[in-house]
């Protein structure tokens, strides 16, 4: 992806609105178009410098599920016939909105 620079840490921190921190592999986090742009070294926003993304729109519960999806997506990227991920019904709406926001 964009992390062509070898000095970049392979992990980034995603912070939810209520303060939960998730250390996520950079490649997984970049499944999200939004986060990818956020971390783009060329654009060099503050997130790219610090490696910490505060996601003010997302609660910890949602973000956890999102991160789970990131890894799930990355793992099955090139395979076909993958079973759907287990999504609790009460999170559905919020996850949908998060997906819209994160461009995943």
């Amino acid at each position: 992806m964009t992390d062509t620079n070898k000095d970049l840490s392979p992990y980034v921190t995603l912070v939810s609105a209520d303060g939960f921190e998730f250390h996520v592999r950079r490649s997984a986090a970049c499944v999200s178009g939004t986060i990818r742009r956020m971390l783009d070294v060329q654009n060099n926003f503050s997130e790219a410098q610090s490696g910490i993304c505060h996601l003010e729109n997302l609660s910890g519960i949602v973000l956890e599920k999102v991160v789970e999806y990131f890894y799930y997506n990355e793992k099955h990227r090139d395979s076909t016939g993958v079973t759907d991920m287990d999504i609790p019904a009460d999170l559905c709406l919020e996850l949908l909105m998060a997906a819209d926001y994160l461009d995943t």
Binding site: M38, E47, C53, E56
Partner: peptide
Amino acid sequence: NASNLSFEELFRNAY
């Protein structure tokens, strides 16, 4: 002078 800016914040606003 972008390094002081938070992408997330801007993005959220635009969003």
